[in-house]
Amino acid sequence: MTLIDLANPTRFLALAARVLPWLAAATVILLAIGLYQSVYAPDDYQQGATVKIMFIHVPNAWLSMFVWGVMSIASLGTLVWRHPLADVAAKAAAPIGAAFTFLALLTGSLWGRPMWGTYWEWDARLTSVLILFLMYLGLMALWRAVDDPSRAARAAAVLTLVGAINLPIIKFSVDWWNTLHQPASVMRMGGSTLDKSFLIPLLVMAIAFTLLFVTLHIAAMRNEILRRRVRSLQMMQASRMAFSSDVGTASRDGNASKEVGAA
């Protein structure tokens, strides 16, 4: 199966049915390994055991941006190449991305309280991630507000690409502004500053969460394709009912005019 074959929703459904059990199994195994390593990771010399929050906060924070990146590529697919599955991919990713962003904010807040002395601070990193979360919600509302999926897709694609401006702002906010949030410690020039005992569980958890996203995304895309099939069959049913009632009205009118003519 080539990539172009996936433009066919039926072929995509067949592929999804084949790969989903394997992806789900790989996700569960990696999550189990990652959680085991997280539990037995040593305490940090400054943060103590609260460093364990990092193993779920950082993967969720990465994914909050990664999912918007996926949606931006899908939006290009909608606007430029009009790929039939592009808007399905974008729409299916939004609630998953919103959930990861919510978790990044929540776990960050729970980590911030013991470490910074506050749950929330209106600094550049926290505020830009909150804006990302609100953009996810706005995008989901837009999809729901417009009934026709193809019209909603174009509007959502434009909004997604405009919103992508926020991604470099989030990434570099800790460098551009003086923030309470710490600067990058994993993806940075000169390599990671994290010790291996923290870095390895963190990377395993990041891969596990990314696999979780891929699994959920493919499953949600499959659901969206089926939802569109339901919609098209319902429209077919409605047009058949309208046609049969038109025929019924026309035949009644015809009989009535005959009766009038007879009178």
Binding site: D43, G48, A49, T50, K52, I53, I56, H57, N60, P95, I96, A99, F102, L103, L106, T107, L110, W111, R113, P114, L212, L216
Partner: peptide, 23 residues
């Protein structure tokens, strides 16, 4: 031993598990 901030750590993991289960 999760130290004096155990509730923050446990709440973080529990919230993540709950949200993922909902998803």
């Amino acid at each position: 031993s999760l130290g004096p901030y155990a509730s923050f750590i446990v709440t973080s993991y529990a919230a993540a598990a709950l949200v993922i289960a909902i998803l």
